[in-house]
């Protein structure tokens, strides 16, 4: 999955790499959640509000298993 972060760049989400650490939920809880069925990352919104971009980038940087990646544009 890919999400545009305003003009800052793009977030890619690869659930196959997710280990369910939940760090993204603690960093950007408005954007990320964990699926009740498998505990893996889910993006709670269809469009990411650019106002949350800083937290989303922080969550991507902190993701231990690189399931979240931020690519600056």
């Amino acid at each position: 999955m890919r999400f545009q972060l305003g003009t800052a760049g793009e977030l890619t989400v690869d659930r196959s790499l997710c280990i369910g650490s939940g760090l993204c939920v603690l960093t950007a809880g408005d954007v990320f959640g964990q699926d009740d069925d498998d505990g893996l990352v889910e993006v709670a919104v269809s469009v990411i509000d650019p106002a949350t971009a800083d937290d989303v980038i922080k969550a991507a940087d902190g993701c231990p298993s690189q399931a979240l990646r931020f690519l600056a544009s």
Binding site: I19, G20, G22, V25, L26, G33, Q34, D35, D36, D37, D38, G39, L40
Partner: peptide, 8 residues
């Protein structure tokens, strides 16, 4: 085990 250790 992952779903049993979610933040929620």
């Amino acid at each position: 085990f992952t779903k049993w250790f979610t933040v929620k």
